[in-house]
Amino acid sequence: MLNSADLQALAITLQLAALSTAVLLVLGTPLAWWLARTRSHWKPAIDALVALPLVLPPTVLGFYLLIAMGPDGPLGAFMTAIGGQPLAFSFAGLVIGSVIYSLPFVVQPLQDAFSRMGQGPLDAAATLGAGRMDRWLSVVLPLARPGYITAGVLGFAHTLGEFGVVLMIGGNIPGSTRVLSVAIYDHVETLEYGRAHLLSGVLLLLSFALLLAVYRANRRFRMMRP
């Protein structure tokens, strides 16, 4: 079965995906809400920026992040200024990379859910005496639940499969930045096909199970949409 090095890679992968997804749901909510409601002429530009990781080679993204996180880059300089660790080749750097890499997979389902519900239920709730926060918790969140499930699972699953960005900014440090996809690459390089098979199988099943959950959840909650 999986040896300890592979298990370690699996654990780091899961941690990275979980943490990135949590950060994405928190940051993605106001961004998606703004995109769903705004009539600003900046909207198309922001939409395009959010969607950029869908089309950009991950190595390009990774390259720019590496520059930014390096000692002379803005992020790196900032970290040095506050006396922190450099971000490149660290787990924290990987989280930042993953958040950007998986951004569209979280923002777009949320944005879709928010625009789909329209202003109608919110207006109705306001006339019934619900204030801004109350409307959010009692109407927006339950109506956007399928969107949140989709966003969470897609963000998680997409981060699981991250390779190019990790390779550029995370390197291959066992126990810190060595994730599953990189481990598989290493096994193939060293002709350890058995172990590559095993890890690939784990990733395949995990991803399938997660996507299955999205589609099941969406089917179940479709009727709740306005």
Binding site: G120, T127, L143
Partner: peptide
């Protein structure tokens, strides 16, 4: 006064019941 502080009952053309 914002909408939620005005004591109105509003019946919309399309009902607008909360679907959840």
């Amino acid at each position: 006064l914002p909408a939620h502080r005005r004591p109105v009952g509003y019946v919309f053309q399309d009902g607008r019941l909360f679907p959840h």
